[in-house]
Design a protein around this nucleic acid. Structure first.
Lengths: 209, 209, 209, 209
DNA sequence: CATGAATGAGCATTCATTCAT
DNA sequence: CATGAATGAATGCTCATTCAT
């Protein structure tokens, strides 16, 4: 392993260290109530150091969302490319992918939406913004491909695949958000998995020819 | 009309004036980038005056969401109590109710979620918080009642009515949020109504026995 | 006196109060070592208040220079328009004008130069910048007019009046700067007035036909 | 050449390398907007290395001025010691010396003044400060000697030689500064050499018996 | 000697909120 | 009631300087 490579790895480790701390702090306090000093303290670093790895607060925040999108993207691709799946298993596989994304980082799924305000986007570097946009597009496109394939094989009803992809994603994230809200306003038990299961079941019934 | 009553009415008019201005400002700039001075200028009042009618910025913001919840609540109640509806028309009626809520104030639907971060909720007065919670509960309960009725009449499949209500609301708001996000990241055409229609259609297929 | 007028006067008083404090602080610590909090403390105001009257630190600083330029401009105009002056008295009158400027605010004369770095100028509002530029131009033009008149009357040697104006101003400010520097590096006595007197005497000899 | 001597030479080379880079960076951005990292990058060194050769930023900056002072000092000494000069050529020779100083490093002449604010001087090491003071004194003393000689020979009018030296230097630097300022505020053509020539001509007329 | 990652003190600026008029 | 000037705490970010390697 060359010296350069080791340094790169070290640098990446630091980025991860900061992101882990940031995730923890943002999760507890939300974006605007979290200070860079809080994050620095959590990461056991000085505020200045964070700025060696992230351009500003918004970009640090966005990079957390980026990670989730990357993970989502990979998981969805696997579904599309899985040759072992029977046609009727696609919805289930997608459900599982989304469950995994949620398990990977439940709070950041919620933050993905806060991210997408022009307010925040203005402070992002063009490269990061482009990456986020590109990943979102790719994920949707892949989901649409799955539906298209299903339609061609006569499994799914003949509706616009992109719209189906949108609905799937909206349903998933909407439920997560809503359950999160209910924790605050309703003190209900945690029905999340139940609700998600039911939602996907209904969707499958609705979508299947 | 007594003097006291007239004063009350005048006071309410002022509150509305401020809320209209606040809605406009929050819609354009988002919560954290909107200043109380912006809102005061829009309302053609002084900053100090706003504090005579709203305890603080968070509460002003929350009161906007409250209005939407109140409207939603009323519309859903109408659906439940509408004796002219055929059983199979309930989903359609709910869809129409939600469309109306969206038309009433599309941006505030989005904001409803930002509201529901512990960040914001901490600054609300207990009374306002209680009101929001109560309204949310009532709306859900009413929706659940509709589904329960449908189940008893054998129209809908026999699933937990509260979960169905959750899914309906999550689907609706998830799509709105997602389409809003897509405007930024995807430059797509505005598919909102199309997507919503399709989503409700699928849901109806999925839920109907 | 109308209410509006009184308010305007009050506002101007505040500006003056801040400028006086700023002048004192900048004089002691220089620009970059002076903090807005120092100035606020000196003015017995809060930091935020300063920003109600001045856009930023640079602009507060520049406004001090502006005052000097305004004063200089007025004094030079008086020289040009003084019908009682004998031709040979113009240089003396200009000298007196510059002495007065120096007495008005010795330290800010020095700062006039620091102001004119592109570094500082970038943060100024276009209006303030334009005002400074215009005043500088006008002052020079007026000085040049005086020399032109002297040349036409055969008192001064026939040299470019604008160059003469430049030299006069450069000599004056150069001496002030230099004497100021000498205080630090040389612990000399304060020869300023002596040096200035001699300089003007030499200049007069040099310039007079 | 001993090993020690070679090391000394190598060390001096590094100092020069850094100073050249620093001069370039300071010239473009001014003192406070130039960062040590900028200078390090320009010198193709790391920030830490600069601190092996210069105590701090202020001292690096001051050392640039020191170079100019050294050069000025040498050139003036040459004038004093030039046995070939006719009496009436002294002013001309001094003018030429100053022109050369200006050509040597026009921007640092300007910076000499910024240096001479108590702001900067406080951070200098006593030795460097002493060196600067000593050089300034010597230069002035040498100039004064020239004038004294001229007075004794009946060429110049009988005025305080030290004051004459001050005026000469102030005139020179004042014009350079002023022309620099005019570039920003006045969009004028570059009259510098013309103005300087005229100024020295006037001074010569004024000073010569 | 050289490095450059890490530091952390320092500061300009903002803005929700108050209160004397 | 209404005002809007004043407040001052809060915070993102910078950068000269250090020091372990």
């Amino acid at each position: 392993m060359g010296i350069h490579e080791r340094k790169e790895r070290e640098k990446e480790r630091r980025r991860q260290q900061i992101m882990v701390a940031a995730k923890r702090v943002f999760s507890v306090n939300g974006f605007s109530k979290s200070t860079m000093e809080d994050i620095a303290r959590e990461a056991e670093l000085s505020p200045g150091t964070i700025y060696l790895y992230f351009k500003n607060k918004d970009e640090l925040y966005a990079s957390l969302s980026l990670r989730i999108l990357q993970y989502l993207n990979v998981r969805i691709k696997h579904v599309l490319e899985d040759r072992n799946l029977q046609p009727e298993q696609y919805i289930d596989a997608l459900k599982q992918a989304m469950f995994d994304v949620y398990d990977f980082d439940s709070l950041i799924v919620i933050n993905l939406f806060q991210l997408q305000s022009s307010e925040t986007l203005k402070n992002l570097s063009p490269e990061l913004l482009e990456e986020i946009i590109e990943l979102s597009r790719t994920s949707l496109r892949t989901m649409a491909s799955i539906f298209e394939m299903g339609i061609q094989r006569g499994i799914f009803i003949d509706k616009h695949p992109f719209a189906l992809a949108d609905i799937l994603w909206a349903l998933f994230s909407g439920i997560i958000l809503w359950e999160e809200s209910k924790k605050i306003i309703n003190e209900d038990k945690d029905y999340l998995k139940v609700t998600l299961d039911l939602a996907f079941e209904l969707l499958e019934r609705g979508i299947t020819r």
